[in-house]
C-alpha cells in the first residue's frame, strides 16, 4: 500500500527530520515557548520584516484608497469612470507629496490609472488570500487524513489528488470562469475565481502534508498520546499538526505568490478576471502593447505585482527559517573552526 515513508519531504528518517518541537527545544533557546522561538527568529530576519512592512503598506493603500465593499475610499476617482485626459494621460506624480490629478496617469479611454491599479491590487490580494486559505485548508485536511489514517483512506484520497493534478488548471479556470460569469455576473467573480483556483491548487500541499504526517505519526510522542487515550482528532490537531506547521506555512506562502502570477497568466490568455473589473494581471496584459509608448500603464501594475510577490516570498522564507528548529544559522567557516579542534 503506497510508499511507507513520504516521498515529498526533504528528508525522512524519523528523528532527523524537521523534528517535533515541544519535546526537545534547541539548547540556545531554552526557556522559550515554541511561539516565542518562532517570533524571535522571525523578527531577527531583516528581509522578512521589511517585506512584512512593505506588504502592510500596500495592503492599507489598496484597500483604503478606492474603498472596499461599499465603503468609500479617500481617493477621488474609481476604476470605471471615464475622465477627460489630463497631461495626455501621462502620470502627474512629481514627488511623494505632489500627486497631481492622476498620479499614475490614465489609460487610453481616460480612466484613472491609480484607481485601477489600486482596485487591481485589492483584487489580486483577495484572490491570493482566498487561494492561500482554501488551498491550505483542503490540502492540509486531505494530506493529514491520508497521512494519518493510511490504508484505504490514503489510497482514495491520494488517487483523487492525482485526478485533480492532471486536470489542466487553465482549462478548469476557463470553464469555471465562464460558468461564474453566467451564474453571478461580474460582481462576485473575483471571489469565485479565487474559490475555484483554490479548489484545484491544493494538490502539492496535500502531498507534502501527507509526507510530513507519514513520518510524524510513527514518532514516540504520538504513541504516548495514543496510550494516554487521545482521540484521533486530538492527535492530528494537537500533536502532529503543530509539528508540520512550518512546511504548511512556507508552502502556502509560496503558493500565494505563484497564485498572483497564475492570475496574470490567465488574464493574458483571456481567462482571468474579466472587465469591467480589474486585476493587476488583467491591466498589465491589456496594456502590454503600451510597453514602449506609454510605459506607465505597464510599470505601475508590474511594480505592484513584483512587490507583492517579493514580499510574500520573503515573508514565507522568514517563516520557514523561523519554524524550522533544525535550520539554525549555519556558517561554513564557523563550522570548520569548530570542527578543527576535534580533528586535531
Amino acid at each position: 500500500m503506497s510508499i511507507q515513508t513520504p516521498s515529498d519531504v526533504p528528508s525522512t528518517e524519523p528523528g532527523t527530520v524537521t523534528g517535533p518541537v515541544h519535546p526537545e527545544v534547541e539548547p540556545e533557546a531554552k526557556g522559550l515557548s515554541q511561539g516565542q522561538i518562532v517570533r524571535k527568529k522571525f523578527f531577527d530576519n531583516t528581509a522578512a520584516i521589511i517585506s512584512l512592512v512593505v506588504f502592510a503598506v500596500i495592503f492599507v493603500l489598496a484597500f483604503s484608497s478606492v474603498g472596499f465593499a461599499g465603503i468609500p475610499g479617500w481617493w477621488k476617482y474609481n476604476h470605471t469612470e471615464f475622465l477627460p485626459l489630463v497631461n495626455g494621460g501621462a502620470p502627474t506624480v512629481t514627488g511623494p507629496f505632489s500627486w497631481g490629478e492622476h498620479p499614475f496617469g490614465q489609460d487610453s479611454i481616460g480612466r484613472d490609472y491609480f484607481a485601477m491599479t489600486m482596485r487591481g491590487t485589492q483584487n489580486s490580494i483577495i484572490i491570493m488570500f482566498i487561494i492561500g486559505a482554501l488551498a491550505g485548508l483542503v490540502g492540509v485536511i486531505i494530506g493529514a487524513c491520508s497521512g494519518y489514517f493510511r490504508g484505504w483512506p490514503e489510497a482514495v484520497l491520494m488517487r483523487f489528488t492525482d485526478v485533480i493534478i492532471i486536470i489542466p488548471v487553465v482549462l478548469a479556470a476557463a470553464t469555471l470562469g465562464e460558468g461564474v460569469n453566467r451564474l453571478v455576473g461580474a460582481g462576485a467573480q473575483i471571489w469565485l475565481l479565487g474559490l475555484f483556483l483554490g479548489l484545484v491548487l491544493w494538490t502539492g500541499l496535500a502531498r507534502l502534508v501527507r509526507g510530513e504526517f507519514l513520518s510524524l505519526r510513527e514518532r514516540e510522542f504520538v504513541d504516548a498520546a495514543k496510550i494516554a487515550g487521545a482521540s484521533n482528532t486530538r492527535i492530528i490537531f494537537k500533536h502532529i499538526l503543530p509539528n508540520a506547521v512550518g512546511v504548511i506555512i512556507v508552502n502556502t506562502t509560496l503558493l500565494m505568490s505563484s497564485a498572483i502570477l497564475l492570475e496574470t497568466a490567465l488574464s493574458y490568455i483571456g481567462f482571468g478576471v474579466k472587465a469591467p473589473d480589474v486585476s493587476l494581471g488583467l491591466i498589465i496584459s491589456q496594456n502590454q502593447e503600451a510597453f514602449q509608448t506609454r510605459p506607465w500603464l505597464f510599470w505601475f501594475p508590474g511594480l505592484f505585482i513584483v512587490l507583492i510577490c517579493l514580499c510574500i516570498n520573503f515573508i514565507g522564507d522568514g517563516l520557514r527559517d523561523a519554524f524550522d528548529p533544525r535550520q539554525k544559522k549555519f556558517s561554513a567557516s564557523r563550522a570548520k573552526e569548530s570542527a578543527k579542534p576535534a580533528a586535531a
Binding site: 502570477l261 497568466a265 493574458y268 517579493l310 549555519f330
Partner: peptide, 26 residues
Amino acid sequence: ALRQYSGLDYGVTFMSFLFFSLPIFW
C-alpha cells in the same frame, strides 16, 4: 546555503524571486 545570510545569499535570493515574479511576457 554555504553562505547563508551573506550578501551573496540575499543578492541571489532577491534576483531569483524578482525574475520569478516578473510576468514572463514582460
